[in-house]
Amino acid sequence: MSTLENTNPEDDGTTRRDFIHVAAGGMAAVGAAASLWPFIDQMNPAADTLALSSIEVDISQIDVGSAIVVKWRGKPVFIRHRTADEIAQANAVAVTDLIDQQADGERVKAGKEEWLVVTGVCTHLGCVPLGTKTGDDRGEFGGWFCPCHGSHYDTSGRIRKGPAPENLEVPEYVFVNDTTLQIG
């Protein structure tokens, strides 16, 4: 047997063939693992889905004191043109009194305090809070009110009362110019 000739007597019977078996098996395992990845990654957001992941919104038509809702990444985003009074209200409360402590200044862009942009998903169980449309119940703090389990948000979109643990999330956005907002 050719394998016997290749046996190294000092090496407890390990042959060159054993090495080839391990090497071939190892390569096959690496190959299998590598070909598995495309089958997992295909589930991630596709290129066209990613292409739609940022949107531009014309905000010139939003009057002071009103708000609009836009759909971004399948979720609602509230854009509110706040009144001076609403901004004052948001700044009036001591940050240490809040459930999720965050100053109003951290939630808006400097110099653009009149614009509040938040994701319209209640941080409790993901309902869409009321308060964007005129005539909606805005809750006790003049911001948003979630009808599902009674969470009240203030004019900065911060949680003030109810079961929600966190403030409404502020998405990534920039002002392209004075009338155009880019979200994402």
Partner: peptide, 13 residues
């Protein structure tokens, strides 16, 4: 979650 959704929310994918 993004892997399960194939996007940023429950949608067509």
């Amino acid at each position: 979650v993004q892997l399960l959704w194939g996007g940023f929310s429950v949608d067509n994918p």
